[in-house]
């Protein structure tokens, strides 16, 4: 079983089609809608937690991309507000996947967005509240 949080961007032409319905019907995937913003004649956005067998999950993702849905992993949506970050480094030991790293030369705290799993732990742990979750 896999369970991943993903962001779906629907182009205008797909907004009025029952795309997500096929994930359940054809691929037996479970999903939980974390956020959705779908308006007729506009691009749609949906944040899903998608769960199922790895094989079905891969097929489901293939179905979505084949239909023109653009998929991002949720991690791309935790961003650091550079204006508020003081580079104190309090986040370094809070992140469960080591997405923050203290540069031992510059002593700045680096944020490796690619490692982020968007768990959100850093958001409340950051003393100046520089980490923001953007859907």
């Amino acid at each position: 079983m896999v369970s991943k949080k993903i962001v779906l961007h629907f182009p205008k032409r797909l907004v009025d089609r029952p795309i997500v319905y096929h994930l359940i019907k054809d691929f037996s995937l479970e999903f939980n809608i974390l956020k959705a913003s779908v308006t007729p004649e506009q691009e749609g956005l949906m944040v899903l937690e998608l769960k199922g067998k790895q094989e079905d999950y891969d097929k489901g993702i293939h179905y979505l991309t084949g239909n023109g849905v653009i998929i991002e992993s949720l991690s791309q949506n935790v961003i650091r507000n550079e204006g508020r970050c003081t580079h104190c480094g309090a986040c370094v030991t809070v992140c469960p996947v080591g997405a923050f790293e203290l540069d031992t030369v510059s002593r700045q705290t680096k944020f490796h967005n690619s490692k982020c799993i968007a768990c959100g732990l850093c958001i409340k742990a950051c003393p100046p509240r520089a980490m923001e979750l953007h859907f």
Partner: peptide, 25 residues
């Protein structure tokens, strides 16, 4: 502490700062 890890009671423990060295500089 600034190396990122210390050994404490036989365990390697990661360290984090609350005060900003770059901003102090």
């Amino acid at each position: 502490l600034r190396s990122g890890k210390i050994t404490l009671q036989g365990k390697k423990v990661p360290t984090a700062s609350l005060s900003s060295y770059p901003r102090a500089l």
